[in-house]
């Protein structure tokens, strides 16, 4: 241990330079990737669809090639029976997003898997089979959001509280949830079983006799 001269690879100045260069290089790579990523997740792209996607049926189907489920945009199936322009759809989804923020949904739920763990993940809540059938779903969701306090769905007694959501906000929130379910999340959540959205019967055939299953509300 009599050496007095510092080895270059153990010297302060070497590591100072390393610290600077490594940080700078990582930051530059990150910025490059960020440009690309931001472009790819801007609404209207392949992964994050345009807001007017809420005019369509959205499904979540297994894709052989990618080896996981992916959102599939189906035939026109407007939300609340009204086809919206892209601008109208954006306003509606935005109102819903603002509602989720102002009511703090993310401190009970997860959205795209981020948030709190006290209540179910909402990424695909639009497609949840617990809404019963696709015919009643929209209205049930609105009713539920406006006052969930008397609509318990579990054996634990864990209810969602009434958050003062107006009907307008509830509809917007449903639009937001529908839009979110169309985002390509690389297969998260895996193994999700979406609600049956097939048309009740071919157009020529008479409507089926048996009524839709009674929703569990």
């Amino acid at each position: 241990m009599s050496q007095t001269q510092t080895l270059w690879w153990a010297s302060e100045s070497f590591w100072k330079k390393m610290a600077i260069w490594i940080t700078a290089a990582s930051a530059v790579v990150l910025i490059f990737l960020t440009f690309d990523t931001v472009a790819k997740i801007t609404a209207g792209g392949k992964r994050v669809p345009a807001y007017s996607v809420i005019n369509h049926r959205i499904d979540y189907v297994f894709d052989e090639k990618r080896n996981h489920q992916v959102p599939v945009i189906g035939p026109v199936e407007p939300l609340f029976g009204k086809v919206l322009s892209e601008a109208e759809a954006k306003d509606l989804v935005s109102k819903g997003k603002l509602t989720t923020q102002a009511k703090n949904c993310m401190n009970c739920h997860t959205l795209l898997g981020n948030g709190a763990y006290f209540a179910p993940d909402l990424t695909k809540s639009w497609l949840d089979p617990a809404w019963g059938s696709k015919e009643v779903r929209e209205q049930l969701m609105v009713d539920f959001l406006m006052d969930p306090s008397d609509k318990l769905h579990n054996a634990l007694g864990r209810r969602m509280p009434k958050l003062g959501i107006t009907e307008e906000e509830a509809r917007a929130t449903v639009a937001f949830l529908k839009w979110m379910s169309a985002i390509d999340t690389n297969g998260f959540p895996a193994n999700f079983k979406p609600i049956d959205q097939a048309d009740a019967a071919p157009e020529t055939a008479p409507p089926p006799v048996e009524s839709a299953p009674v929703p569990a509300l």
């Binding site: 179910p120 617990a130 579990n154 193994n191 999700f192 079983k193």
Partner: peptide, 17 residues
């Protein structure tokens, strides 16, 4: 909840219970 039930509403509560 995740692997078996696939993260639905009912699956979530199956896990919680």
């Amino acid at each position: 909840e995740r692997a078996i039930e696939g993260s639905g509403w009912m699956g979530y509560f199956a896990g919680q219970a």
